[in-house]
Nucleic acid binder design. Sequence first.
DNA 1: ATGCCTCAGCTCCTGAGA
Length: 254
Amino acid sequence: MKLATWNINSLNVRLPQVLEWLAANPVDVLALQELKLTDDKFPAQAFTEAGYQAQWFGQKTYNGVALLSKTPAADVVRNIPGFADEQSRVLCATIEGIRVIGAYFPNGQEPGSDKFAYKMRWLDALRDWVRAEMAAHPQLVLMGDYNITFDDADVWDPDGLRETIHCTTEERTQLQALIALGLHDAHRLFEHPPKTFSWWDYRMLGFQKNRGLRIDHILVSDALKARASACTIDRAPRKNKQPSDHAPVVLTLD
DNA sequence: ATGCCTCAGCTCCTGAGA
């Protein structure tokens, strides 16, 4: 079984690439972030024809998430229960016995800003909810665009970007608090070359120079860690003519 | 210090992303 996450930066623009990628990588579950479209514009028919069921939670202009799956999704939850939020960032469902949470974490823009404070509040609420979900569902995966690096190994220029957005101590402490719930960074369960990233800036030839960050993560519970056999980042779509700035991350389970 | 690209929208500039 394979599960994947991909921030596609506009489904309107990237639908053909998503379909092309699914044809070449027929994963069982794909979590999408940054749909940037309203629910009435979601291309459900195209995914059905590709063999995927879809759950979606859209929003005009910004955010928006979806869960594509080959088999039905049950007990669907939108956003974090009990956390009032006008932004569409979380979609959760049980698929093939696995509690799957797809999330687009807030960017935070700049430490000290209102958006950064929102990011911290959102992370607090997410953690409390995920703790409860884990208690009810031993097989759980939390995947998406976290907009946080774990450590310097996830950053192309750790010194130049020290304590900047995605790299602050506050954000990394929040990420470790999720780990402390009993989750594991699937990427780090396996060996990877140094400077393996999931996002590259569109500017300054970021991808060509591998000036990137690893901010797209798949976190798994103990029960899923025991089943994990690979976790890879697929750089191929970043080489497309009109790419997303993010690459898909793929988890393989036995 | 800023823009570099890309996308959406109160669209031919601006805000936001990361």
